[in-house]
């Protein structure tokens, strides 16, 4: 019963007539009204993007006549242009974002576990540091990252500039950060009795972590993985200085080039590309939803 007061103040007077309907409305019906409002709010601006993608000569914001023309030329254009290897960008993005997401979840969960379950000197400082480091304004970060990666390139070209591994490594630098905190908070809500019981049963720390705790925190792992996947997919600044060859670039880097010169911006193709780029994110979210909200709670396992 998750009814909140904001909800029960009512948008119901007109709809309360039949008794069963009223009950249904109080329980879940009003949630649909909130849902519909939020769908309109969320999706409406994106209709402009869809309209621009379907209109072969469309501008993004030039007109309020949405869907004046419908055609799929922009999709064809972006998919078939040899200088814009959309397929390669797509695969690269999936690869980089998936590996980064999995690695981020893994490294973050390890750290969160130790922060949550162990007591050691430097723990407090460590927790503060990982969140403070990410607060440093990133205005000049590219200069430093380029310098670092170009130096690495001199010795180890395979993990330096213009490589996906190099890019993933830079992203993994952010694995310990606010996401770790999110996991840390979640770990803290798992009762320690569970660890203790397992310990009495003779399980080692690694076993407790991998076989017991991780299952209990699955929702937050899924959330962190999704957040990491989305932010990697849309990351542009670092990817654009590290990835040089068009066929190595990610969607964000490749697509931005289509519109970076305002005079020659191809908004139709860009919008078409952005829509296709959003598909993996949606698919992943659909897939992960059952882990995020499958009714799997600490209470349920006890």
């Amino acid at each position: 019963m998750n009814t909140t007061v904001t909800a029960s103040t009512g948008n119901s007077p007109s709809t309360r007539r039949p008794f069963r309907f009223g009950r249904w409305f109080r329980a879940t019906g009003w949630r649909h009204i909130v849902g519909v409002i939020m769908v309109i709010f969320s999706v409406f601006p994106l209709l402009y993007v869809l309209s621009a993608a379907l209109n072969p000569r469309g501008t993004l914001t030039g007109s309020n006549h949405l869907f004046a023309e419908i055609g799929f030329e922009a999709f064809g254009r972006i998919l078939s242009d040899p200088t814009n290897p959309f397929g390669a960008w797509f695969v690269n993005t999936l690869l980089v974002a998936s590996i980064t997401a999995v690695a981020t979840v893994f490294l973050g969960a390890l750290a969160a576990y130790s922060f949550s379950r162990m007591r050691f000197t430097g723990r407090r400082v460590g927790l503060m540091t990982i969140v403070l480091v990410q607060m440093f304004p990133q205005l000049l970060a590219v200069v430093a990252i380029f310098l670092l990666m170009s130096t690495i390139s001199d010795w180890f070209p395979a993990i330096g500039l213009n490589t996906h591994i190099g890019l993933i490594m830079v992203y993994m630098g952010g694995a310990l950060g606010v996401n770790t905190y999110l996991m840390y908070g979640f770990f803290n809500t798992i009762p320690r009795d569970i660890d203790e019981a397992a310990k009495i049963d003779g399980a080692g720390h690694a076993r407790i972590f991998f076989t017991i705790i991780l299952r209990l925190v699955a929702p937050i792992l899924a959330v962190v993985g999704l957040l990491s996947f989305i932010s990697t997919t849309n990351e542009f600044v670092v990817a654009s200085i590290l990835l040089i060859d068009p066929e190595k670039q990610t969607l964000a880097v490749g697509l931005y080039k289509l519109v970076s010169n305002p005079n020659y911006a191809d908004w139709s193709a860009f919008s078409a590309g952005a829509i296709m780029a959003a598909l993996p994110v949606m698919a992943l979210f659909l897939f992960l939803q059952k882990y995020i909200v499958g009714g799997l709670t600490a209470g349920a396992v006890k």
Partner: peptide, 16 residues
């Protein structure tokens, strides 16, 4: 538990 993440953190965030 901390070392893997910390190595990347130091190289790619603290250095930056």
């Amino acid at each position: 538990y901390l070392t893997p993440g910390v190595i990347f953190l130091v190289v790619f965030q603290i250095f930056v």
